[in-house]
Design a protein around this nucleic acid. Structure first.
Lengths: 208, 208
DNA sequence: ACCTGAACACCGTTCAAGT
DNA sequence: ACCTGAACACCGTTCAAGT
């Protein structure tokens, strides 16, 4: 005889709008999120969406909000501080790579900082363990976050387009080093590039 | 009595279409480049553009082509190889920052590699001077190019949006270091971040 | 060879009208 | 409080028709 705490009265509410929009974006692309397509997916008139979420712009903000809320902490492994920092950043990179379309939206709307708040907190803890505080720690957080974001953004956009177009070696009269030209023709290994840059940065940032 | 080599017979041709499109994109945004607006700017019917350049997608390709053709070499200063490499990369970063919208288009279309061909050539020359060849040189070229592109892409997208939203320090219970939180609240200095990362990478890449 | 206008299938958004 | 349909001002693109 107990009734559910809240009887839904309408067919759709703000939450299912956001969830459906999220699905459209993650499965396809931000361009797949049109008000008409969303309405079709929800089985309502287009204009019903406007009542719940305002407009498309506000809906994108809600998606970002949801993404930020989902960004919990991350498992860290390793015994030395350097290993732990490296593990932390690699895990974050991995997590971001799983939601490329959403993080692109967040990034375009200037919400990266918020999105990274948990990562910054974890990083701050590890940096404190090696004696970095205040401005020095902030600079380190920024440089490392830059590296993670850059890696993800570049890998994401490189995934689209005509296979990154590794330039025709024959059309390179300016570089008189055939081995170099040949090596540049093979596809980029983003994982390795990330690790290389990360190691270089940690060498600089962490006290010996 | 001499006639010009070629008498233009039509009001518009492919070149003025591309030039006008270029202007629209550089002055505003890629979203300002609509076929109808372009036609208005040219004083023709919308459909005339289709005769000259195909469609919007092909037009974007032509813009990228033009950008790539414009990417000549760059003045390099400094006496040590390291100083010269650093100068080269800073100059390229500067050049890219001057045309943010266009490089964004090129990047989204997977044409970054072509765009950077002259930079890669200059870089190869300098790397050869310090004894780097073949695969090692290619890896260095890639890592350094990654750093330049990343810096430009992030700075560009950070320029839009609500001032990058430096997170409210009061909402940071997770970081028990008020100086760090305060330091993270001031806006990012992209120039400094670029130089810091560049120095770290060069330390790793160049032989002592 | 070059350009036009009409038409089609899409967008986001507003608004008066319904329950 | 919640939803609808019609309407408006935009898109890119096609196509038959004009010169």
């Amino acid at each position: 005889m107990s009734t559910p705490a809240r009887e839904p009265r309408s067919a759709v509410d703000g939450d299912v709008v956001v969830e459906t929009a999220l699905r459209l974006v993650e499965e396809h692309d931000v361009s797949a999120l049109t008000m008409r397509r969303l309405a079709a997916e929800l089985g309502t008139a287009v204009t019903a969406i406007y009542w719940h979420v305002g407009n498309r712009d506000a809906l994108l903000d809600l998606l970002v909000e949801r993404l930020i809320a989902d960004m919990g902490t991350v498992r860290v492994t390793g015994r030395t501080p350097r290993a732990r920092i490296s593990s932390l950043l690699r895990a974050w990179r991995q997590r971001l790579l799983e939601r490329p379309h959403l993080i692109a939206i967040a990034h375009e709307r200037g919400r990266t900082a918020e999105m990274f708040q948990p990562m910054q907190a974890g990083l701050a803890r590890e940096l404190a363990a090696v004696g970095l505080h205040g401005e020095a720690a902030a600079a380190a957080v920024r440089v490392l976050q830059f590296h993670v974001v850059a890696s993800v953004v570049l890998q994401r956009t490189a995934g689209r387009g005509p296979a990154t177009n590794p330039t025709d070696p024959a059309a390179w009269p300016d570089i008189p080093d055939p081995d170099l030209v040949g090596a540049l023709a093979v596809p980029v290994d983003h994982d390795e590039m990330f690790r290389f840059g990360l190691d270089a940065l940690l060498d600089r940032l962490l006290p010996a």
